[in-house]
């Protein structure tokens, strides 16, 4: 991925995201337990936690894919229920699944989503995104013929197609090899520098910490740690997180 600075795209106006005592229950299981967070526009937040800690649930609620059982979610002080459907235009989401149609080509998948987003000059925008994700050579390939890593890059392209203000990425490095993971983190760092809010979940402590400005650690659905990241003090940060997780 070779993300160039995108001068043609307008500067993002990321919303302020506030969660107040956000909880989510699945039957008797508490996936998220009174999570309270304030994410300022343009922050790069890494949500860390073990499997089942509540990372996916938190991201799905922030992505408006799931409703909390209790608590409040606000975007720019507006409760989610009062937001118009067009607000979803401001969010890009990469989940565990790719949301791609196997029987369509790479280009057709992106064109389908571009039509739903109502993107003007869709062909041109798709060309740009394919170039950013280094997928131009695979534009005519069927999604089902792509490797896991290429599918993940296409999923990123889909989430980035409409130039969202907020990027939500649930363990996006899954299936990517080390050099591609490295390039993805560089790409995300550039998105962040351009003013986009990036919220990324991971259980890979070492790699995901590097580009983050803030770390949220979830432990059994609760926020166990929430503080700024110090990329120059990685060892110290890791020790702090390991201690918080105990």
């Amino acid at each position: 991925m070779t993300l160039p600075a995108s001068p043609r795209q307008p500067a993002p106006t990321s919303p302020r995201i506030v969660t107040r005592k956000l909880s989510k229950y699945f039957g008797r299981f508490t996936a998220l337990d009174e999570a309270t967070l304030t994410i300022e526009p343009g922050e790069f937040v890494v949500v860390l936690g073990r499997n089942g800690a509540g990372k996916t649930t938190l991201l799905r609620i922030l992505g408006l894919l799931q409703q909390p059982s209790r608590g409040e979610l606000l975007f720019d002080d507006q409760p989610v229920a009062s937001l118009p459907v067009r607000f979803r235009q401001r969010i890009g989401f990469v989940g565990h699944e790719t949301f791609l149609y196997d029987e369509l080509t790479v280009q057709e998948n992106l064109l389908f989503y571009a039509r739903l987003y109502g993107i003007a000059n869709a062909e041109q925008r798709i060309g740009e995104v394919l170039a950013e994700m280094a997928l131009e050579a695979r534009a005519g390939s069927f999604a089902r013929h792509l490797s896991r890593g290429l599918k993940q890059r296409l999923a990123l392209a889909r989430a980035w197609l409409h130039h969202p203000d907020v990027l939500l990425l649930d363990e996006p490095a899954t299936g990517l090899d080390a050099p591609t993971r490295e390039r993805m983190h560089d790409w995300l760092a550039r998105c962040h520098r351009a003013g986009h809010t990036v919220i990324l979940s991971s259980h890979e402590l070492r790699e995901s910490l590097r580009p983050a400005t803030r770390i949220v650690l979830l432990e059994q659905g609760r926020v166990a740690f929430d503080g700024p990241n110090h990329p120059d003090r990685q060892e110290e940060m890791q020790a702090l997180l390991v201690a918080a997780a105990r």
Binding site: G63, V85, R88, F93, G95, E97, L100, G118
Partner: peptide
């Protein structure tokens, strides 16, 4: 591939 969730993301 959970495409229905992808559609629910659309504005």
């Amino acid at each position: 591939n959970d495409c229905l969730q992808g559609l629910r993301l659309m504005p």
